[in-house]
Amino acid sequence: MPPRRQIVVVILVVVAVAVRLSVAGDLPEFREAPAFRNGRECPRTAWSPASQEKNPHDPSIIHIAMTLDATYLRGSVAGVFSVLQHASCPENVVFHFIADRRRAADLRRVVAATFPYLKFHIYHFDPNLVLGKISYSIRRALDQPLNYARIYFPDLLPSGVRRIIYFDSDLIVVDDVAKLWRIDLKRHVVGAPEYCHANFTSYFTPKFWSNPVFTASFRGRRPCYFNTGVMVIDLWKWREGKFTEKLEHWMKVQKRYRIYELGSLPPFLLVFAGDVERVEHRWNQHGLGGDNLEGLCRNLHPGPVSLLHWSGKGKPWLRLDSKKPCPLDSLWAPYDLFRHSSLFSDS
């Protein structure tokens, strides 16, 4: 190879490595989580996407789906850690992570380094699926394509996975997730805590409520608000009922008529509200991040707690880092595996 060509090749390699490091460098680093092992009473399981196709719906395996991105990775890691720490059979929990293809490899390395014993798989989500369907909302974070990935779980996950629990990336579980996994969905596609005291009309614009064609979508149902950050989903029934297409329909209506102000929540309300299997409120103590504009501190709802959810603008890791935490953020802190940079070098 001529010397000039060698120099060009070396330069290209150096540039490629530099770009790679800069891309991966914006991901936070975490301490390695301890290994969580099953007790003797736990059934033995072996899972992989291929084995799931051959042996579908093994009830002893708990499938949890979450999204992964650089912005919320710290919250996702804390959520995973909390699930494992409180699970009665942690080795029987499988995580299904959805990530942008461009970041999937880097995110995989972070998860594998933080949880060396974790059973997980990362699926690639194509943002182009929703880019032309997303309408701007009251908070920019709600407009990110990955927020809409939950609509496509039945297309992304192996067909042998019948049921999943979906968790947002800003929550911690403080109870055995198997209790949530075992709820009976009966005929329903989705199970979630409902909040029928909430002002349901506020989730849609006057243009929606003044149009009888739109409001007819709730005919035969008594719709109640539910938070989509915690859902138990029957993927087989979802596919059978073509619910992805139904959700996409309302996203198209929104683009034309502007019938709501929030992001991916209202389409779920339009399709499922009033037809949800009720889950105890303890499984989604939501709203701890305040509202979508100011993110002020909030207290817990009355009653027992199995899951704490910082939905809203305020995230516990940001408030803790800014030295302006809310009182309940101290409950999230023990699950934070983020490796803070030290002021002192070991050398």
Rank of each mutant, 00 (worst) to 15 (best):
M1S: 13
P3W: 11
Q6W: 13
V8C: 08
V10Y: 13
V13P: 13
V19W: 08
V19P: 05
R20W: 14
S22G: 06
G25E: 02
F30E: 09
F30W: 08
F30N: 08
P34D: 07
A35S: 08
N38P: 04
R44E: 13
A50N: 13
Q52R: 11
H57K: 08
M66R: 12
L68Y: 00
A70M: 11
T71Y: 05
G75P: 08
S82P: 02
V83H: 04
S88L: 03
F95E: 00
D100C: 13
R109I: 00
V110W: 06
L118R: 06
I122E: 00
H124S: 15
D126S: 10
N128F: 04
I134A: 14
I134Y: 09
S137M: 01
I138R: 05
R139I: 02
A141F: 06
D143Y: 01
Q144P: 02
Y148R: 09
R150F: 12
G160C: 09
V161C: 05
V161T: 11
I165W: 00
Y166I: 09
V173C: 01
D176E: 03
A178P: 02
K179P: 09
L180I: 00
I183Q: 09
L185V: 09
K186R: 14
C196Y: 01
H197E: 14
F200R: 07
F204E: 11
P206G: 04
K207E: 14
F214Y: 15
F214M: 05
S217M: 08
F218W: 05
R222H: 15
P223V: 09
C224N: 06
T228W: 14
V230S: 10
V230R: 01
V230Q: 11
M231C: 10
V232C: 01
V232A: 04
W238K: 01
R239P: 03
E240G: 05
G241E: 15
K242H: 13
L247W: 02
K252N: 13
V253E: 15
Q254Y: 03
Y257G: 03
E261P: 02
L262E: 00
P266S: 05
L269D: 00
A273P: 06
D275S: 11
V276A: 08
R282S: 14
W283A: 07
N299Q: 14
L300T: 08
G303N: 06
P304E: 06
H309F: 12
K313N: 07
K313I: 10
G314V: 12
R319G: 04
K323T: 13
C326M: 06
C326D: 00
C326T: 04
W332F: 15
D336M: 04
L343M: 12
S347K: 13
